[in-house]
Computed example of a mutant assay.
Amino acid sequence: MFTATEIKNYEQLHQMFDALSKDEHNQTSILANASSLLNYFLKDINWVGFYLHNKETDQLELGPFQGLPACTTIAIGKGVCGLAYRSNDVFIVDDVNAFPGHIACDANSKSEIVVPIYKDGKGIGVLDIDSPIYDRFTEEDRVGLVKFVDILLKHL
């Protein structure tokens, strides 16, 4: 069940992002502002950003992000991001060290949520968020971040 604070916070985040992206047409700018807002808004995270599908290489490539330097390419179906993208399903990983095939870019990351980004049935990429805390991400985060991606898709 959502608490009043969580609803208010995600609703405010959605409204801010929608307003900020309203007249923007540059994908890089939209994604950069999205990662910045999420980095500011979400507590107890150490990395937030996007991996975008490159049709020529059929890999996920690093896009705009906030945090330490990261892996630049991820094969489709590999790691949390590659599996979430391939399955078009949200992945919440409570302990990344227990996830088979996890790709460790930051040794401080303990948990992760990955939201695939698909528009009109075509994969664009994933939103990836890491935390230095085990069990950081909840069902409320899943719902709030899926809606955030839905708003993002309106502007891409």
Rank of each mutant, 00 (worst) to 15 (best):
P116H: 10
H53S: 07
D23Q: 01
I74G: 08
G125Q: 01
D18H: 02
F2D: 01
A19N: 00
R136H: 11
F17P: 06
T57K: 14
E61W: 01
N88D: 15
H53C: 09
L38F: 06
L153K: 15
F91S: 12
Y85W: 12
I103G: 09
D44N: 14
L13C: 15
N39K: 00
T72C: 04
D135T: 09
K119R: 15
S35V: 02
E56R: 12
Y85I: 08
E140F: 01
L38V: 05
F148G: 08
N97D: 08
A107K: 14
P116Y: 12
V146G: 02
K8T: 11
G49F: 03
N33I: 01
L62F: 02
L127P: 12
L127M: 11
S36T: 01
S36I: 00
N46Y: 04
Y10F: 15
H25D: 14
M16H: 09
D128H: 09
E11Y: 06
P100V: 04
Y51E: 05
K78N: 15
K122Y: 03
I7P: 00
K43V: 12
Q15A: 14
F137S: 12
I133C: 11
L38N: 06
L152A: 05
R86Y: 11
R142C: 10
L60P: 08
I76F: 00
L62S: 03
L127S: 09
E140C: 03
M1V: 07
E140V: 03
I45F: 10
F91V: 06
Y118K: 08
K154F: 03
D95G: 11
Q27L: 15
R86A: 15
V48S: 09
L13A: 15
N26E: 15
M1C: 04
G101F: 13
Y40N: 01
L83C: 13
Y134A: 10
I76W: 03
I103E: 13
C81F: 08
L20K: 00
N46P: 07
L127W: 07
D44M: 04
H102C: 11
E24S: 00
D120K: 13
A98Y: 01
G82V: 09
K119W: 05
G82S: 11
I117E: 07
L52G: 00
S29C: 05
E24F: 00
G49D: 06
E6K: 08
D23G: 00
P64W: 02
A75W: 02
K55N: 08
K55Y: 07
L127N: 10
G121V: 07
I74M: 10
D128N: 11
G79W: 13
F17K: 12
A19D: 05
Y134E: 12
L62A: 01
A84K: 11
Q66S: 06
H102Q: 11
L37G: 01
N54L: 04
R142Y: 04
T73E: 11
A34M: 05
T138K: 14
C105Q: 10
G101S: 10
C105V: 13
G63E: 04
K119L: 14
I117W: 09
L153M: 10
F2A: 07
E139A: 13
V146N: 09
G49V: 06
Q15K: 14
V115A: 08
P69T: 08
N108P: 06
K43N: 14
G123F: 07
H14C: 03
K8N: 12
L83A: 13
P100F: 05
S36C: 01
A98F: 04
F41N: 03
A107Q: 14
P132Q: 11
G79V: 10
